[in-house]
Write a protein that binds this DNA or RNA. Structure first.
Lengths: 236, 236
DNA sequence: AATTTTGATTGATAAATGTCAATAGGTAAA
DNA sequence: TTTACCTATTGACATTTATCAATCAAAATT
């Protein structure tokens, strides 16, 4: 690979599904306008309702996407490296529907939205990748809606734990990757109710102490949670 | 316009945002493989989990998209003419996340998913349209999630009525376009609870008799509903 | 180490929502 | 018309979830 090529400066980005197939020249153009910044924790990166000037790419750290209405707040999603966020707003040149703030020290690439739209129009490989990414995002939100509408809070927690377990390698013991109050908000319940949901899962094969989760009875938990690939398998 | 062109056979489809910009030759190819069918009411068009063989376009009638889990069912969306549905599954060649059934006699175009994907790859205008459509769909689902997580059932109903009113022209009186039990399911509540929510809105400027809705006090309803463009404006 | 702050948990209670059963009303079929 | 069926509504009650207040635990700060 040519060491002069800009992709050598951004190998993590170039290797993302979204950018891996596009033409080298176009990738260069995109990266010429890119800003890379380090943000401390608890920084408001973008605010709900603002115009979408940049496509964001999280390189390290983590970001919470939240929405507000009438003084209430809910966590909509957790972004983990390496992935983009707020792609749809960038594409549509429409206001952000969610706010984003860092949870830890985070390294983030900002790509001017206008550049993304321009290159999209002239690079069909890039266009294909954007469509795949958007379709994936859409299906994730649909699955989340099904989770919210079809399950009780305890069932949502049980299935969340099974998904986390899978993501952590499948062992019976793993750590929660999230503060409990944020997890509660993401799952659509209060922190108090999350505590009670954890207690309620004790009889279904789960023990939690602090961040530590132990699935003491996998079969029992699966029987209770009844996970479905059409809700819980985030890869299809 | 050339009367021989196949678009003359499908003017309603050609005029859809999704197809209006694509090359004539590609549109012809798409339509060559198209089936147009009339379905009676209450027909299951597609089932959750099935492979997505066709992109569907609703020409007349109406379609309900529902999802199930553990014996529970919820209405995810209502499709009205003229629009496509289940685009993301077609693009990703992934199983449907929702079932679809007709609510009334419906005329529906079926486009083989493989054709859509093939032409997508060779027509950048079509690709652009698909991206716009997907981004729109994504944002709609996000708004719906915000509605579900941030509002009580009564607040959801109040805002739904304001959106319906706007869609019906803005007059104080309009008809519900949906059976109440389906509306209840779509709004994420039981039919009983919907009845009570309607009653609860009487003191906030709404009177409902049968399908007939009268906003007796617009200001009062708006004050209670507190609609937000970032949830309720489905065009941005 | 002591203090302060923050998050988690618990108990008591309230509010929201769901379930069940009964009834009313309207529509469609016989 | 009569009957049958389906939907909507209502009341009583159960369950789920949220709220409030107090306490506890852990982490951060002084």
């Amino acid at each position: 690979m040519n060491p002069e090529a800009p992709e050598s400066d951004f190998p993590e980005i170039r290797s993302l599904d979204l950018f891996s197939d596009m033409e080298s020249e176009h990738f260069k153009m995109l990266m010429r306008g890119a800003y890379v910044q380090n943000f401390p924790p608890q920084i408001e990166l973008i605010s709900e309702g603002d115009p979408s000037d940049f496509l964001h790419i999280l390189l390290t750290g983590s970001v919470d996407l939240v929405s507000q209405w009438n003084g209430r707040t809910t966590s909509m999603a957790r972004v983990r490296p390496i992935s983009t966020f707020i792609l749809a707003a960038t594409i549509k040149d429409a206001p952000y529907l969610m706010s984003a703030h860092t949870l830890e020290k985070s390294r983030i690439v900002l790509l001017p939205s206008q550049d993304v739209r321009t290159i999209f129009d002239s690079d069909s490989k890039f266009a294909r990748s954007i469509v795949n990414e958007l379709a994936q995002c859409y299906r994730s939100v649909v699955k989340n809606t099904k989770d919210l509408k079809l399950r009780t809070s305890r069932e949502r927690l049980a299935n969340y734990l099974l998904r986390q377990q899978k993501g952590a390698g499948g062992a019976a013991q793993f750590e929660l990757s999230t503060e409990k109050r944020r997890l509660a908000s993401f799952l659509g319940m209060t922190p108090e109710n999350l505590s009670r949901a954890f207690k309620g899962l004790q009889t279904h094969g789960v023990t939690v102490t602090g961040q530590n989760v132990i699935i003491t009875d996998q079969k029992r938990l699966v029987a209770f949670a009844n996970p479905s690939p059409l809700i819980d398998d985030r890869s299809i």
